[in-house]
Design a protein around this nucleic acid. Structure first.
Lengths: 244, 244
DNA sequence: AAGTGGTCTAGACCACTCC
DNA sequence: GAGTGGTCTAGACCACTTG
């Protein structure tokens, strides 16, 4: 069962700051109140305020200058599609200001092949759940995604699962698994015939591919995915803060 | 002038932890001493210790489990080429266990075109410094890189600069500029004829391209780069921790 | 029940920038 | 010199896992 946990003070403060930036209360290029003042205004300690700011700083939205003040990035609104928000395709698409819809192309249970048993550390032929999905941004297909989960993890019958949710939510809801970390190998490739058709591409137009493996807190692989990403239609932007 | 600044306690502790993991003092899959014990052993506060651990956690090398303990990722040594270490190609290549050498193909001063003046926010025709470099991993060419810096930033004559250093070091040394953050647009593309030749590729083999823009602490663009990345020869792996 | 990591506080001192 | 962000401490309480 999924219980909604109350948000921490830190994450609430983080949301407040994001909202103020988004709404223009803190305009692009402007200086924020000092950390002490902000902490006092919000009724939290300075340490908590700084903790809430870290993600905004690492995303490049806030630019702290020692001895001066903290400024809002002049280009906040140009850096909205970020690899950081990448744990959910839905998020990434909606961050780019477009509507995301998911088409489930197929879901099936198959025996694991060599690659599946290697990556997921299961016996060959063990049953796996395979789901194929297509993500649209404003009715335009942008991501063709295949995800694979060992059937052994499921706490209910695979046929009863709703595949239109993000993978992490799927794993939490139907498999009682929480993702601790994931690895993604990023490559460039010419699309397979199936991808050409589904994504409505030219066959000689290369696309980005992601090979993702998801691990739980016990360091076990719980799923992996193959994602074809139409980079011409949805920008993939990485923002990095250069600490010291 | 570049002054070497003394390291913070946090970064020293971070280095100690990395070293202990690398040397096997904390073996893959094993549990670390508790945070309180570690802090006491190293003579720092628990807050500082946790601060030192954050980067290791976000890279997926350490896996904290509330109520239990903190474990070393079983696969630490498989996640060595990470996008996080990506602020320096040299670092990235050496992290993959190979030797990095840099060939400077050309350096020249040219008038800015439309794209250069747009991205760098300078007047058209203003002089820019263009450097083309080729990065090798163990004698194999892996990255073809073009970087562009407005000549106005230089504090010495551009001809006197050593282009065999990482871009951030170059900017600090010769331009008195520090990078605060950067954006990278990641795309897939068929290589230009020049890239085919330099990187010794097949012309129908797609590669990863990065369009990077670097900003200083005043939020001004100070440089941009176009990088062609032979993803078949050097893996581009992103590791992400899934917080809460 | 004991021990672990997760969160939060109040206060201190430093390095730095601006006026 | 005044004010800012950067670092660090000591201590507290909570949520959680394990024995």
């Amino acid at each position: 069962m999924i219980l909604k946990r109350p948000q921490t003070i830190t994450s609430q403060v983080n949301s407040i700051l994001r909202k103020r930036i988004r709404d223009g209360a803190y305009a692009p290029g402007s200086k924020l109140p000092s950390e002490s003042d902000l902490a006092a205004e919000l009724g939290v300690s300075r340490a908590t305020l700084r903790q809430a700011m870290t993600s905004l700083v690492s995303e490049g939205m806030l630019l702290p200058r020692q001895g001066d003040g903290t400024y809002v990035n002049r280009r906040v609104f140009e850096i909205s599609t970020r690899l950081e928000s990448f744990w959910s395709f839905t998020h990434m698409i909606e961050n780019s200001g477009r509507k995301c819809t998911i088409h489930v192309l197929s879901t099936q249970v198959l025996p694991a092949g060599q690659r599946e048993s290697d990556v997921l550390e299961i016996a060959p032929e063990e049953p796996i759940y395979v789901m194929e999905r297509l993500f649209f941004a404003d009715e335009q297909p942008v991501i063709l995604s295949t995800n694979i989960i060992p059937v052994a993890f499921f706490s209910i019958a695979p046929e009863c699962c709703d595949a239109r949710v993000p993978l992490n939510v799927f794993l939490e809801t139907y498999c009682d698994q929480w993702i601790a970390y994931s690895t993604s190998d990023i490559r460039s490739a010419l699309p397979a015939p199936q991808a050409v058709e589904r994504l409505q591409l030219d066959s000689d137009e290369p696309l980005l591919t992601f090979f993702d493996v998801f691990y739980n807190r016990a360091d076990q692989p719980v799923a992996f995915g193959l994602n074809n990403y139409a980079d011409k239609r949805l920008n993939m932007r990485l923002v990095r803060a250069w600490g010291a």
